[in-house]
Design a protein around this nucleic acid. Structure first.
Length: 766
DNA sequence: GAGTTTGAAACT
DNA sequence: CAGTTTCAAACTC
């Protein structure tokens, strides 16, 4: 794994990266998996990766169990404004482009100003004079708003950071870095009990400091590099973030940190070099590390193990995990083939097994050993790649160092997150398809990483039969969770975290051996049917009433929506974790019958709801498509040519539909008007009570008529007029209208009388 | 709340 | 693919 030299950390901005700006290209073919696996020597070296979201003490934990001393020091990009080299401003962009050339020196030529951009640019060859520098050297040149980093990801490669605009200060490498200490934030993924859930700002100014820091606890978020080179061009990571102006001093702990998306660049041969992306709490912070050329917001999380004593270099980039619609990407670089996953733990590499899923184009890679390793599911046709993390069956469960950290090496598509003791399955977006994936509309399928102080294991431990559903058609937000000890997968509904834990967070990784509150864990907020988790959480979910289907057929809305039943009225429900096997089978059966079964029926139009249409169309025969029996009507969309309905009245010009809509609107307006009128009346009455006027009392108390002032009378008349208008609007006969008005009048009087009875203010004179 | 209606899903 | 059955939601009383 290639690790960005510590100098690079200086260049990294504090704040959030804008994923939209990120463009990734496929990397050149990766080395053989074995090589990559060997290249990552230290399983013992814990590579905790943590991310915090908006000061929430939640932590993304992808790796864990490394002793604090062996942890790689992660350098964050928090740059104080007082920094001479880099001034922190908002809207800083970081463009990362992995370079093909190897052993490129690291050149930093940063001059951060407003709207800075850091560009990590992959170049085919070592970049000229900068390449002549020894690896690890850093040239920092102020003056440019963009940093270009090249030669990332190859073994023995040096990283070159170049600013398009070389400033007056040609980089002198480490010397300048030392001269200009920067403040860094530590983003750690991977949990240990002793690890702190919050980011710790650290100022690392030179590589020498890094060496000293190596003994310290390392928290790294790695920037994954794509290994394949796509025809589209070089990989470019553009990270745009507003820079936090907060002057962070060295070793200043940053409580507010991080949501992070991590890209890891690893090289099979050389000691892993880690780029840590982290972000502060800046509201505008964005991190987008994505191979996508489109403005898709993706989060790539890569966990790479590091050699404990190896000179690891990590750079933390601010990440904003708070943005919805983002997906966590776990990606490895430099794998030989997309289908091969190499897990570089202290344990020897595990052979992998390729399993065809859903046809020849679908392949699932399974490790042949159940020990801690990574199982990758490659679904070429799918937007997602799934990674299965299998907890080691050995005694590693104790969280012992050396077995838990994951070294991820991968080719462009496959993404692997490997943690010993932690089983995790994460949908991964291949580089080619990332641009297509992300943020689903409203509805985004994106994931947001957040951190929590406590670990949660979201994966049921029950083993599953080998069920390999068509991964391309899983319900929105569905995750595949590995069963314990075997190749089974549990299809996790998008909501399941929320359903299970009163939270819309999914623990991506955690170590069972880290029970302490400081345990680091990663959670992903999963999209729910295109809704962000926040939306999903607020969305009222209708409980089902299934009796015979066991909630394992599409009759059940919960099941159809990819959700677990919760607080439902169903009987004999199997749509839960307790019946994950049956559920998985049912999902597979549904997908066999209809590969589109779990896809949204209502396609989202390009320009809003007007273009929404039912994917299959309805088949109504008796309802005229004007009742909720009709899926089109229920979705508040017109029937289209795809519908096979009979006697359809759900079209634009339909008078019945117009009448229906008119009535519906009228009813809504009526409710609103009545509410407003009543509110006004109540306000008027209350206002009267507060007046200090000559009291008109009768036997010490006020008579109700004393409250019928001009204001009260007017408000009452408004209520009556509203009632009359409503009666007219719905074309009620006169008698009915009169009755409605009288009833309203009665209600008004009752309010007045009631208010009079409640008041005992003798001074009020109405 | 019970019963009916309806149409999607499942089945043949 | 068409017809039938099953099912649960929508609807009515």
């Amino acid at each position: 794994m290639d690790v960005v030299s510590p100098e690079l950390n200086i260049l990294l901005p504090d704040e959030i990266m804008d994923t939209e700006a990120i463009v990734m290209d496929d990397d050149p073919p990766a080395e053989s998996p074995a090589a990559s696996g060997q290249s990552q020597p230290s399983d013992d070296a814990p590579i905790p990766m943590e991310t915090d979201v908006l000061a929430v003490p939640e932590i993304v934990s992808l790796c864990s169990d490394a002793p604090p001393t062996q942890r790689t020091q992660a350098l964050t990009t928090s740059i104080t404004t007082d920094s001479t080299l880099c001034s922190t401003t908002s809207a800083t962009q970081l463009l990362l482009t992995p370079s093909i050339a190897s052993s490129s020196p690291l050149t930093l030529r940063p001059k951060l100003s407003a709207n800075h951009q850091i560009i990590l640019n992959k170049v085919a060859s070592s970049p000229g004079a900068d390449t002549t520098r020894s690896p690890g050297t850093t040239t920092i040149t102020p003056g440019g708003q963009k940093f270009m980093v090249t030669a990332i990801g190859k073994s023995g490669q040096s990283i070159v950071l170049q600013l398009p605009h070389t400033g007056s200060k040609p980089g002198s490498g480490q010397g300048e870095a030392k001269a200009n200490p920067q403040h860094f934030k530590v983003l750690t993924i991977g949990g240990r009990t002793d690890m702190k859930p919050v980011m710790v700002g650290q100022a690392v100014s030179s590589a020498s400091q890094i060496s000293t820091l190596q003994a310290q606890q390392l928290k790294t978020v790695q920037i994954a590099k794509k290994t394949q080179v796509s025809s589209a061009g070089p990989i470019k990571f553009i990270i745009t973030k507003p820079v936090n102006n907060k002057g962070l001093t060295a070793q200043t702990s940053v409580s507010n940190v991080i949501t992070g998306r991590v890209l890891s660049t690893s090289s099979p041969v050389t000691p892993p070099r880690t780029i840590t992306l982290s972000e502060t709490l800046s509201s505008n912070s964005k991190i987008a590390i994505s191979p996508l050329k489109s403005p898709s917001k993706l989060t790539m999380v890569s966990v790479a193990s590091q050699v404990p004593n190896s000179p690891q270099k990590s750079v933390s980039l601010p990440l904003n995990m708070a943005h919805l619609g983002q997906q966590i990407l776990v990606q490895q670089s430099t794998a030989t083939s997309p289908a091969k996953v190499v897990s570089s733990h202290s344990t020897p590499m595990k052979p992998v097994q390729t399993v065809t899923v859903g046809g020849p184009q679908f392949k699932t890679i399974f490790p042949l050993s159940t020990s801690s390793n990574v199982q990758q599911i490659q679904v070429p046709g799918s937007r997602f790649h799934y990674v299965r993390l299998v907890t080691a069956t050995t005694g590693s469960s104790t969280g012992q160092a050396g077995s838990h950290c994951t070294n991820s090496s991968m080719t462009a598509k496959p993404m692997v997150v490997n943690t010993a003791q932690v089983r995790m399955s994460v949908p991964i977006i291949p580089a080619q398809t990332m641009k297509q994936v992300v943020p689903k509309p409203l509805t985004s399928s994106g994931q947001v990483l957040t951190t929590q102080t406590q670990q949660r294991l979201i994966m049921p431990a029950t083993p599953l039969p080998q069920i390999q559903p068509n991964l391309t058609n899983l319900p929105p937000g569905t995750m595949l969770a590995p069963g314990s000890g075997n190749m089974g997968y549990t299809v996790l509904p998008a909501h399941y975290v929320t359903q299970l834990q009163q939270s819309a967070y999914v623990t991506l990784a955690s170590s069972s051996g880290f029970p302490t509150p400081t345990g680091i864990q990663t959670q992903a907020r999963l999209p729910l049917n295109g809704l962000s988790t926040s939306d999903a959480a607020s969305r009222p979910r209708k409980p089902c009433n299934c009796n015979k289907s066991q909630c394992l057929k599409l009759y059940c809305d919960c099941f159809a929506n990819g959700e677990f039943c919760q607080s439902c009225n169903c009987t004999n429900c199997f749509n839960n974790l307790e019946h994950e096997t049956e559920r998985a089978k049912a999902i597979k059966a549904c997908l066999d019958r209809n590969p589109e079964a779990f896809k949204p029926k209502i396609g989202k139009g390009k320009e809003g709801e007007s273009d929404r249409r039912h994917s299959k169309g309805c088949n109504c025969k008796r309802s005229g498509c004007l009742k909720n029996y009709c899926e089109c009507y229920e979705a508040k969309i017109m029937c289209s040519s795809t519908c096979k309905c009979v006697g359809c009245k759900n079209f634009e010009e339909s008078p019945e539909r117009k009448t229906l809509m008119h009535l519906a609107d009228a009813a809504e307006v009526r409710v609103q008007q009545q509410t407003a009128a009543k509110t006004k009346l109540s306000s008027q009455i209350s206002d009267l009570f507060t007046r200090t006027t000559p009291a008109i009392t009768s036997g010490g108390g006020r008579m109700p008529f004393t409250f019928v002032t001009k204001e009260v009378a007017e408000a009452t008349c408004e209520c009556l007029l509203e009632q009359a208008e409503q009666a007219e609007l719905i074309q009620q006969p006169q008698a009915t209208a009169e009755r409605m008005i009288l009833e309203e009048f009665g209600r008004c009087l009752m309010r007045i009388i009631g208010s009079a009875g409640k008041t005992d203010c003798p001074s009020i004179n109405c």
